[in-house]
Design a protein around this nucleic acid. Sequence first.
DNA 1: TATGTTGTTTCATAAAAATTCACCTCTTTC
DNA 2: GAAAGAGGTGAATTTTTATGAAACAACATA
Lengths: 149, 149
Amino acid sequence: MKQRRQNAILQIIEETCIRTQDELSEALQSRGFDVTQATVSRDIKELCLLKKPTAGGSRYTAPAKEGFRESVGRVHSIFHSAVKTVDYAMHTIVIHTLPGMADAAAITLESMEWPEILGTIAGDDTVLVILRDGETAARIAGRLSEMLK
Amino acid sequence: MKQRRQNAILQIIEETCIRTQDELSEALQSRGFDVTQATVSRDIKELCLLKKPTAGGSRYTAPAKEGFRESVGRVHSIFHSAVKTVDYAMHTIVIHTLPGMADAAAITLESMEWPEILGTIAGDDTVLVILRDGETAARIAGRLSEMLK
DNA sequence: TATGTTGTTTCATAAAAATTCACCTCTTTC
DNA sequence: GAAAGAGGTGAATTTTTATGAAACAACATA
């Protein structure tokens, strides 16, 4: 059901100019999918749709990159399941993972393309992340911790 | 000032991962630009920044297309200044413009790439817009009227 | 000097989107 | 069959974003 609904969403935003999540949920209603804005919000997040600014107000569209959609959802879950703790000192963050998972965690980190991250080094169960400065390290460490919740 | 601030914004979102407009206005504060979220919201609209979904939450980025930024702002103003009235019947919308401006209005319409619009025909001071059906015509006509405000 | 005019900003608030929490409905496992 | 776990959802709420109105500044005009 969810799968079919998300396909419908992709089709709808292709065919019509959808500007809000309420509009989208109405469009779905008229196709027999009875969902609320809350669900649409989650679908949009999963599909990685983006709200593109155009002349007559903004509009939801599918992301340019293909294959992008599939990857993003997984990155989060890989990171989530691999990482045990996140700590930091000076301008470096230390991430402890399950044994053998450090490399996977590092790759997901890289894939996020956060500009603050200068680079990562992965051992077996530890990833070292190098940031520009201590303040940045604190901020990014906080964000990574958030991702574990 | 505004110009310089918007340049700063482009640089900031390039260098750091900005996830909300509040974050952005704080980043601006620390660079000496003392602005509120309201202003940031308008800057983002003018710069046509988009909020791109990624693994660790979404993030503002510059649009892919270059030259995109300049064009979008203008489309709206051209349409606004050229068009006098918008009306519709059946599955067609009739737009009256200032003399000689119909072509310009039609071109801006096309540039919006609204999927509901099958096509346009421009005379001297009139544009005919062909939609899929009457319901769509009513909806799109409403939207175009909105743009005149 | 008074009087627009235009562009930009903030404040307050409305609108839109994300999230929390509770509750379902299935599976799986004992 | 009961209990536990995983997915998925809606209602209500919070957070984030957009906007209307008023204020202000810079500049031109009478």
